[in-house]
Design a binder for these strands. Structure first.
Lengths: 356, 356
DNA sequence: GAGGTTTGCTTAATCGTTTAACCCGATGCC
DNA sequence: GGCATCGGGTTAAACGATTAAGCAAACCTC
């Protein structure tokens, strides 16, 4: 039903000029008299002219689209990242093509290739934990942890962990349970490592990997003297919070609970969850910016040798974005009893601090 | 670094034939001798030939991409939908371009136009509550509620509500709080409507819209005799659950709580959350299928008049996908006390049943 | 063996944009 | 006044795939 959309040719015909002139007028590149250029721009505007992206892509080899590969779209952290990436990309005039790797390495590779074939100008990857992203002939930005080789930008999980530790310490806590899911995840390792690094030698620390100890009895830990629970994800923090609550413990009076990422529900629970949030906007912005830089400048001061392995590509862009503590109701002063009279296990510290 | 990717021309040159022949051989369309065709296919395979999507798009007008517009990427339901859409689209060889409308109508329209400009062959829209999606010259599939005009496919929220009501009724509950966020959302209206329709005239029903009564005191309601809380979203169910729990009520012994959508945390809380799940895969599959049908068959038995307004386009595709009850620990038998001796407010039924 | 049909491929146009190369008239310079 | 320069355009060649139309040889048919 719609009339054919305006093209360079159709506009050119109206003015009796060639399509090249119209192209130049709109892009401001060639030499066109100012008067004519102005009239052409006005007319194009009025017509609602929009260049055909496929045609442009064909000619220039740039599709104006970047890919976003995520380990698992169902991961509740994803929406924030996706939203931030989409916004940042849109600001640069780019579209965002999504791909889900379903947490499988094979699918991750396949997804990358599909995106490349679709002509993505660059790809942002949040790798599945422990995965190394293969090298491609497309600019890549990796969001993982500062420690990962090839990482482009990410939250400073380690510093975030340390900051959360400081928060709990400041509230008087001296016995901690640090709860993660999987040791394989470098993000989780960093968070736990940061927490541990932020706690003094004298603190009691139990580290629990849920993957290995899924049946952990949190109320028992609390009864055993643990007063602060820090989980690497709000999801686990929520589990701990509700489990303790159901066992009759008052949060935060009898125990404090904190998580990471400020997931959607963190503010909705009662008591609301204290959490370390990543600045998704800044991270996404940096990832997109890094991509843009690599797309525009082909070789970023080409690494002399071994393009494959290196942690090269060190753009001046920031690499570790600080995290922000969002102190809510689930953390509070350590119970007085524990403060004054430490329990039987004064130094069960399972592992010593591991700062490099 | 990478050698130029293979094109039809480069393959044609290898065989000393024209690019048209190669195209025909690969697509199986024109007339090519079987022997040559087989050799060409083999060679293309070996070379990892992939057609240039932009070029194809330019020629055919089909980009092989569909757009997905969501009201708010930060909405926790989004991941499931996005994941399902992505999978369904990938199965059909389509890519998915995302766009966030930030809940604003203006942004929603702008996002749609950006997608159209990008050459999306079709667009799936989950409209912001209460929004009517404007007509475009691009196939559209709308996921909202069966009641919305123009809706393509969605969960049967009303029947889901009724089924949840039946579940609670079966557990012996007779006094309910139905909790929604906003009356403007047709999804929420349907869910609440379904719940109400599934409850008998004799039941006590309190309907609460959180937007209007954000400070609702749920423990007070429970003390007042309400034994079952059904919220239109797991997010609110979680809020209710934790609030009651903190107030010292044992869930589900003293009160049952249920939600909708089976969000990521529903299984993680203690007690785990009973919820009505939508079958995102089926919904997304149907939406994608509807899009494909409209893309391939230009006019679906063209509606004689008023292409704009109608609830036309009635493809044979299913429109209301049944929801599934996921009974977990947060719902249980109504407390005996309430069962035998109803509380002081036996008939505070705020509104009567409203089945059409 | 002449006419018609297949078969198997080629030619060439087309999608809409970008961009290098060229062209012509008007100036500017010494 | 001869020659380079510049401003304001035009031409034409891409980009890579698709597809209608064309064309020569081979095959069939009676």
């Amino acid at each position: 039903m719609q009339a054919a959309p305006p093209t360079l040719q159709s506009i050119a015909a109206e003015f009796g000029v060639s399509s090249a002139t119209v192209s130049n007028a709109l892009s401001g590149k060639g030499r066109v008299s100012e008067g004519l250029a102005a009239r052409i721009r006005a007319r194009a505007e009025a017509l609602g002219y929009a260049p055909s992206l496929p045609a442009r892509a064909l000619r220039t080899g740039r599709s104006g689209v970047i890919g976003l590969v995520l380990p698992d779209l169902a991961n509740p952290l994803f929406p924030k990242i996706a939203q931030a990436v989409e916004a940042a990309a849109a600001r640069e005039g780019y579209g965002v093509l999504i791909a889900d790797s379903h947490g499988e390495v094979g699918a991750q590779t396949a997804a990358l290739q599909r995106l490349v074939q679709r002509g993505a100008d660059g790809i942002i990857v949040v790798p599945r934990r422990g995965t190394r992203v293969l090298e491609l002939d497309v600019p890549l930005a990796v969001i993982d942890t500062p420690a990962t080789p090839g990482n482009t930008v990410s939250a400073d999980h380690r510093a975030g962990g340390a900051a959360l530790a400081a928060h709990l310490l400041g509230l008087g806590h001296r016995a901690f349970a640090l709860v993660g899911e999987s040791r394989e995840s470098s993000v989780q390792r960093d968070r736990i490592g940061g927490l541990r690094a932020g706690l003094p030698q004298t603190a009691r620390i139990e580290t629990i990997w849920l993957e290995e100890a899924p049946e952990t009895d949190f109320p028992a830990l609390a009864r055993d003297g643990i007063t602060a629970f820090a989980a690497t994800s709000d999801l686990h923090a929520l589990r701990i919070l509700t489990t303790l609550q159901r066992a009759g413990l008052a949060i935060p009076r009898e125990a404090s609970v904190a998580g990471f990422d400020d997931l959607a529900f963190a503010a909705a629970v009662t008591p609301s969850l204290t959490t370390m949030a990543q600045d998704s906007d800044r991270i996404a912005g940096a990832a997109v910016a890094a991509l843009m830089a690599r797309i525009d400048g082909p070789e970023p001061a080409a690494p002399p040798a071994g393009t494959t392995g290196g942690s090269a590509g060190g753009t001046a862009a920031e690499t570790a974005v600080p995290m922000t503590l969002i102190a809510r109701e689930s953390t509070g002063p350590a119970p007085a009893s524990t403060r004054s009279e430490p329990r039987p296990h004064p130094a069960t510290r399972s592992q010593r601090e591991t700062t490099p």
